[in-house]
Structures are given as C-alpha cells and as structure tokens.
C-alpha cells in the first residue's frame, strides 16, 4: 500500500513522458517533412589561385573536344550517367529523359565546353522513388561536375544554385547567351501536383569551366 502512490506517480510520469515523446516526435516529423532534406541554396565562393586573364575567348575548352557529350559524372552525389539526347517538343518545351535513371542533354543547344549555356536535365524521382538527379539539391558552389565529350572529361565548377517556380521560370537567364562555357543542370522540386503529374518548381544548378575563381 505504501508503494502505491509512488507507482501511480511513476505511471503518471511515464504517461506524461510518452505524451511528450509523441508530441515532440509528431511535430518533428511534420517539420522534417518540410525541411529535413531541403538544402537551402546559398551562393558562396571558392578561393582560387592567382592567374592572368586570357587574351581571347577560348573557342572550346578541354583540348577542343568535339561531338556530343556522352556521360555526366557528379562525384559528390554519386551520379554517373550516360546521356540521352533531348529535343524541344511541339510546345517548344524541353523533353525529359525517357529513362528515369539517366540524365539527358539538350542536343540542339550548346554542347558542354563550347561557349554558351549547355543544358542537362534529369528526373528527381520516378513513380516509386528517387531518380538520377534526386540529390542535385545537395550541390554547392565549388562542387565539381564532369562531362565526357570526345573521349575527354571536361571539368565544370558549380557557381550557384537556384529554385524557380515553373510559372516564373527565368528563361532568358537560364538559356540566354553567355561569353564562356556554361552548364545548367535542371531537375524538379517543390510541391507535387498529382492532378498535373508534375512538380511546381525547378532546381537549376549553374556551373562553368571557369567557375573555380
């Protein structure tokens, strides 16, 4: 009888603790849903070594690699994919790779290593789980992206990342002309709209051959 109050208090404490755990884990769960995997992209800069400015714009980099790019490698997020050829559809929108496990290159556009914005798109997920560019959001300024072209690997450095609502996609900024060899890696994110079968946002990773300042 003397142990009863302690026991009840103990049980009450257990009940209280369980409630706290439930509430905390529950809240954390819903919050985590929104933010745990969300990399907040922040532009940052990489220290480079001293170098003199070149006299002329190089026509190409990587020993004048020619022909189409055939592979993309992003060591930081474990991407190593051959490249599909992507065109524009009848609405002038960029096609997406048929294979969710492979990235695709916009083959009527700039080839990586040539001056201009080369575009590579990849799916973030298929119907069941992650696809080739699932971890693209983890890339930060300074990270390396490699493209195989004409038997040579071209190295690009990430210069920045940005999320855009598809309804306000900055076409001219992403696809506009550039003085140097640029790369745009594109995938999806944001909310998934099941009725439209697509995500609301695009993630664009900007990279350049001259990106490591």
């Amino acid at each position: 009888m003397s142990r009863a109050p302690t026991g009840r208090r103990g049980r009450r404490r257990t009940v209280f603790a369980a409630l706290v755990i439930l509430v905390v884990t529950g809240a954390a769960g819903t919050l985590a849903v929104r933010h745990a995997l969300a990399a907040t992209p922040v532009a940052s800069w990489v220290e480079g070594s001293f170098f003199d400015l070149p006299l002329t714009n190089p026509a190409t980099v990587g020993g004048g690699a020619t022909g189409p790019p055939t592979r993309v490698r992003i060591p930081k997020i474990g991407v190593d994919s051959s490249l599909e050829s992507l065109r524009l559809d009848r609405q002038n929108e960029l096609e997406t790779p048929k294979d969710y496990a492979r990235a695709g290159w916009y083959s009527d556009g700039t080839a990586p290593g040539d001056p201009g914005p080369a575009v590579i798109a990849g799916h973030v997920d298929n119907r069941r789980g992650p696809a080739v560019f699932y971890k693209l959001h983890e890339l930060k300024a300074g990270d390396i992206v490699e493209i195989l072209r004409g038997g040579a690997w071209l190295t690009f450095h990430v210069t920045g990342t940005a999320w855009y609502a598809k309804s306000r996609f900055p076409t001219a900024q992403v696809y506009g002309p550039t003085p140097d060899a640029q790369l745009r890696l594109i995938t999806c994110g944001g909310e998934f709209n099941p009725s439209r079968g697509s995500y609301t946002d695009n993630l664009v990773v900007y990279a350049a051959t001259t990106g490591g300042f």
């Binding site: 789980g129 076409t171 697509s198 995500y199």
Partner: peptide, 19 residues
Amino acid sequence: ARRQGGVPAGGVDTGAGGT
C-alpha cells in the same frame, strides 16, 4: 555571348512524384 538551338519554353517536368 553565344548560344545554340531554339530557346526552350519555361522549365522542365523532371519528376513523377514517387518521393
């Protein structure tokens, strides 16, 4: 500054919602 090919209209639909 230069570029090649037609300018794609808007973004890209790269996801099927599985995650």
